[in-house]
């Protein structure tokens, strides 16, 4: 697997799986307005996933398009980080996940926008504005829940604590990649620390750091997600609306 292909595929898979998870909130969000906001964010992620997977297919040169990559791979062939496949949990857990994901995607896409690869630069340029909005949305809720009632504070801190071990995988060094994620960690830490401080939440201690997503070794949650996401395409190959 070439480095640019692996890198682009991983980013596309992050966005695709994040989109699928967020879409699970549709009709279930705390209020109708938030329902639409989460669906919007999910669609932004899906849009980025389509561009990234299409380009990944071209880099691979084996004739796979976005649909082949999204719907015809099994869990061991997915390269997304574990963070995005974790169950949604309660609203606080989802916001903690979105905060971590967008605080990682924003500097990543911003760096991509200036990279040598024109296609990745164009995708980065488009996606970074969306990521900035996702970060804004997540930060807004983390601050309100963290600095809210005793119960909302407790649950928001629990959400951040639950998600934290999974952020380390995002920044594993990839020296061969167009952008080495390890160089983004400082940016991420500064962004998240500022949000958590305003939310009166503690930055969790870093210890256990599960990984494996980039090698196709996933949690048990991914297969169930894929089953739901892929069933239609697999039952009716090439089906169109």
């Amino acid at each position: 697997m070439s480095a640019p292909f692996a890198f682009t595929l991983a980013l596309g898979d992050d966005a695709l799986i994040a989109a699928q998870r967020l879409a699970e909130w549709s009709t279930r969000a705390p209020e109708m307005e938030e329902d639409i906001a989460l669906a919007n964010i999910a669609l932004d992620q899906l849009g980025a996933a389509r561009l990234l997977l299409t380009y990944a297919g071209e880099l691979e040169g084996a004739g796979r398009d976005e649909d082949a990559l999204a719907f015809l791979r099994d869990d061991r062939e997915f390269r997304n980080c574990l963070l995005v496949e974790l169950p949604n949990g309660d609203f606080a857990v989802t916001m903690a996940k979105l905060l971590a994901l967008s605080a990682y995607q924003l500097p990543l896409y911003t760096a991509l926008a200036g990279c040598a690869d024109e296609r990745l630069a164009a995708i980065g340029g488009k996606a970074r504005k969306e990521s900035a909005y996702h970060l804004d949305h997540a930060a807004l809720w983390v601050k309100r829940l963290g600095d809210g009632t005793e119960e909302s504070h407790r649950r928001m801190q629990a959400g951040v604590d639950q998600v934290w071990p999974y952020v380390h995988e995002l920044f594993a060094a990839q020296p061969e990649a167009p952008i080495d994620p390890a160089t983004l960690r400082g940016d991420f830490d500064a962004t998240v620390a500022a949000v958590l401080a305003e939310a009166t939440l503690a930055v969790p201690q870093s210890g256990w750091a599960p990984a494996g997503g980039r090698d196709g070794v996933h949690t048990e949650h991914l297969s169930y997600l894929l089953a739901e996401m892929q069933v239609l395409h697999r039952a009716h190959p090439g089906a169109r609306w």
Partner: peptide, 8 residues
């Protein structure tokens, strides 16, 4: 939050 929702 109202402003963000209005945007959406």
């Amino acid at each position: 939050v109202a402003l963000r929702h209005a945007r959406d």
